[in-house]
Design a protein around this nucleic acid. Sequence first.
DNA 1: AATGAATGAGAGTTCATTCAT
DNA 2: GATGAATGAACTCTCATTCAT
Lengths: 211, 211, 211, 211
Amino acid sequence: MATATPRQRRKDARPQELLEAALALFVEKGFAATRSEEVATRAGVAKGTLYRYYPSKDELFKAMVRENLSVHIAESVALAAQYEGSIAELLSQMMQAWWAKVGHGNAGVVCKIMMIEARNFPELAQFYVDEVITPSQNLIGGLIQRGIQAGEFRPVPIEATVHLLIAPMLHMLLHEHSFGEHDICQQAMSPEELLNAQMSLLLHGLLAKPA
Amino acid sequence: MATATPRQRRKDARPQELLEAALALFVEKGFAATRSEEVATRAGVAKGTLYRYYPSKDELFKAMVRENLSVHIAESVALAAQYEGSIAELLSQMMQAWWAKVGHGNAGVVCKIMMIEARNFPELAQFYVDEVITPSQNLIGGLIQRGIQAGEFRPVPIEATVHLLIAPMLHMLLHEHSFGEHDICQQAMSPEELLNAQMSLLLHGLLAKPA
Amino acid sequence: MATATPRQRRKDARPQELLEAALALFVEKGFAATRSEEVATRAGVAKGTLYRYYPSKDELFKAMVRENLSVHIAESVALAAQYEGSIAELLSQMMQAWWAKVGHGNAGVVCKIMMIEARNFPELAQFYVDEVITPSQNLIGGLIQRGIQAGEFRPVPIEATVHLLIAPMLHMLLHEHSFGEHDICQQAMSPEELLNAQMSLLLHGLLAKPA
Amino acid sequence: MATATPRQRRKDARPQELLEAALALFVEKGFAATRSEEVATRAGVAKGTLYRYYPSKDELFKAMVRENLSVHIAESVALAAQYEGSIAELLSQMMQAWWAKVGHGNAGVVCKIMMIEARNFPELAQFYVDEVITPSQNLIGGLIQRGIQAGEFRPVPIEATVHLLIAPMLHMLLHEHSFGEHDICQQAMSPEELLNAQMSLLLHGLLAKPA
DNA sequence: AATGAATGAGAGTTCATTCAT
DNA sequence: GATGAATGAACTCTCATTCAT
């Protein structure tokens, strides 16, 4: 039985390490402003080593994005499928869960990066639309539909509602990441509380007498 | 009365023209991917001339952002001050107006650019927070407050509601600009319709029986 | 009447100067072993300046080759057309002339460079074949034909004879340039004498009694 | 009697295999454009293994050249020594033999490679001059001398005649390798025919009445 | 004031060579 | 001995910025 040498072990971990370093730096400084060598150094290797694993800076970027996006939709789909309670409750839980897993951590910032670089990486943008955006919208949209059919929700337009659910989370993410240090007001309420309040507000409406 | 020569007039228009060229190109290709010379050429001058008006690419960027942000808040404030009808109606009108004036045109994309480059231009980010974000939030927040005090709105948390009003617009803007070409679903409903539907939805809430 | 400024004058001369520097260095060290910056430095400019005139090292190479090849065939054709004496004499003169103008100077070494890099620059190779090799062969071949028809030459095969006339000159050129410093024997006889002797030999044949 | 294990046998063959791989690749792409790893891969070993046999790419090159040059002179010398017939016939046979063995195969292209890299490998150039060029010239020159003394040849200048015999073969070799794909004319006559025609031409001369 | 030729620091990428396994 | 992961010097090319004209 072949035991992995330290070197082998390091080699196996390299792609991950490089991707993590890339994520951190692209997040911090943007794609263009990050030098290849920085990524390598941050991953603890020399410049040339990076190119053993990713043939170019562009490919590194793409790999990093794909790596960080391939995950979370499936989980949410599973959660939704087996859920029994009210749709409102489910939606609320899903948003909280997404924020906890994606929005909060580094992975969520990939959404920002993806948005920023969409124009420069068209194939990647398409991939993102097909693999993340569209499935997400379908998931949420399907739940709204279920809620309407079950009589829980009013017969609202699906598409607009989906947007109204998704936008605040993403906006919070982007805003936090871009202006978190400068926007002091934002820091009064925790994102979780904010999301909760928004959900509640959305469910019951703003008007005093919805007649 | 001194009459300006054509030359003089041209010279006076230069900063504006350069800023417009910069906006167009930064929007199209991003800050890093836009070369100084491109901006100059697009503005109809030579590379060196650009540097007579803005001492560096960074300064050009900052000027461009400031130029495009200093405008629209004031108008909205004025509109809000003299308004007499229902707050719900006012909010709806303001959002439509903002979309028509800012969101629709190139000017709106400056929000995206600002977001992207916030980390690389901290003073500019602070400026943006102080001059755009905070005033906007105060404006909207004040209106919500007025609505609550007038009994038009339920006593909702101000901050969360502000977010819920602003986020969909900005998200639409960003999404459109980043993925407009790739996301086919988006094209089903016009932004204006979408905003309307969202506003209505937000006012009345999602639930069928608001208890 | 606009007088050219020193700067303008320098600018006009740049392409030539760069091409000359490139020729010298490519001759001396080969294409691959010559760094772009060396060419620039030798031409008295900075690295970046080179790229204002030639968009890549490859293009610089191609320009250099074309520059140095476009000349000499035409002259020989003219010489041949108006000649009255014996073909043997004409051939002899042409070879001497070619050696003096092309073979001797830097221009001739382009033939070597072209040969070396033919595989790496297929279009250029085709250009060389079409513009230099084939015309040369046609020129010499036509003269042989004239000689045969005039009864001056035996009815020899044209193609082989052309080769037999051209090869020694080119070989001398290549040999000189590659091994000139190492091959001492070569230095006993001057190239001009050698060419003369070869011509004479070729005319009269090697055999003592030509049957 | 110690029998070599398969492994041992393989190891013993390594240098040869590496040299062959190097030859093929240097011929195909040139020295500079061939990566060390390619040579190793082509020889069926890993990159590092190459360096166990040749301490650098340069040394590999030198070994390859030496390997491919050390052979054929001796054979020709032997052939010449024991020959009885006419010198003209012998020369003709030798040229045909050289073309068949050297010129035709890959081995001959080493002459081209040697020429190309002569400037970058001075010691190798000296070796080539001493071990190949000079002996060849001496061999041919000696035969010419014999022919003259035997009355078979006219009292021609030795050196020039040697050149006139060698140049066409080498030139054919170089030309074929460099422009074979682009020069269509060349393909009309086979190299063997061409050599024959040239030899005949050289023996009898070009002039109709050598009187 | 305007130009655009010139600059050179800096970035991405390659590849000969080393050395731990 | 063989391997191939790792290295980093070296190279091509870009582009913000300067400055002579």
